[in-house]
Design a binder for these strands. Structure first.
Lengths: 195, 195
DNA sequence: GGTCGCTATATCGCCTCGATATATCGAACG
DNA sequence: CGTTCGATATATCGAGGCGATATAGCGACC
């Protein structure tokens, strides 16, 4: 997940670690902040895997500024991570946010697919929460309040996504030529079963 | 955080690991699910620190059922963790949820204090998000949509908390005798400066 | 001229997580 | 009767995330 964010920023311009940390805070609107303990090991991994290249020097001592740039392999990896299916862990919320922050690099068709997968995930979660609310075993008022709030928040999230999807589809239909449009609609209709 | 949840469940009755994992999913309404990779090491730590005690046996081979029970030290630790000040990390949301699931073990006065600290944290976050929204540098429509959604969600959370606090205060004022009430109000007014 | 705070890289230990290994048990099936 | 399946139950592995902290050059300010 942090790899996706790093690659997304390096796609715009080469940067050094410290700068990446700041930008990650600003670009993503404080929605997520990385720690050095995650950042530097990730840079090592990415370089090891050939997704980024470093060119050190420029500055003495602690002012070294090891500048990292994205490679072709990195560009490929970026697009792969951007479309990756949801992993359904507890970090999935953050993962989705980071992905959406770089949506502009995906074609409208793929954007809609990612958004719909996310919505499906939330609908599953909503069903689960509702089931728990129906369970008469949970009598603790605070636990019920938590669940009810989770229900409301999830419903709001779903409504927001539905709106986004609608807007995205409209852009898509205006932009795409007729042939493209029909093929894309078929894809959209098919996706529910395959996911 | 997982320690708090384990202690909270063991407070009600002794349990073995597998049972704990199930209960954590049910009791907390699917708001959080623990993995074995977190559960068993945590049980080891808690036992090492004397917060829980295990009494193995009962069953042959893999059906051992190592039953864990909370100790006096565990009860002390539980209350300490339950009131612990916010750490402001990315896991703070989950931490708050787990804490609130065991609110019944805290006196109303302390509950209000925890809720208000949480609200203050969210207000800080809201201010940050709003600042980012005001920044004209962020032109990406998806990033702006994310921030605006974060704003709305945070505002909804704050409103929810405000409501909870109001209800909690009312319960408090009805329950507490006059002397208690005055002392408690002073504590509440003082808290902003000390935190 | 001292010290405060920002820039910058790096590492430590602890914890979390998903996956997986291992093994027992009851029920279901033919 | 055997066997196969799924639930119960404990445990560990490697990869990775996180907060704290170390180190050190640097400009600004009084």
């Amino acid at each position: 997940m942090i790899e996706l964010a790093i690659l997304g920023l390096l796609k715009e311009q080469p940067m050094h670690g410290y700068q990446l940390k700041r930008e990650l805070g600003e670009q993503l609107g404080g929605l997520w902040r990385v720690s050095y303990g995650s950042l530097y090991p990730s840079l090592r991994r990415l370089e090891r895997d050939g997704a980024i290249s470093s060119q050190g020097a420029a500055g003495t001592g602690a002012r070294r500024k090891t500048v990292y740039a994205i490679t072709d392999e990195g560009e490929r990896l970026f697009l792969e991570l951007l479309q990756e299916p949801p992993q359904e862990g507890q970090t999935e919320d953050t993962r989705f946010r980071v992905r959406m922050a770089f949506f502009r690099y995906l074609p409208p068709e793929t954007r809609v697919r990612v958004l719909e997968r996310r919505r499906q995930g939330l609908q599953d979660r909503l069903a689960e929460v509702k089931m728990h609310l129906r369970d008469p075993g949970t009598t603790d008022s605070y636990q019920r309040a938590l669940m009810d709030h989770a229900r409301a928040a999830t419903e709001a999230d779903i409504a927001w996504l539905t709106d986004l999807i609608r807007v995205e589809r409209r852009t898509f239909e205006i932009t795409a030529p007729v042939g493209e449009q029909r093929r894309a609609s078929a894809t959209l209709r098919r996706k529910e079963r395959t996911g």
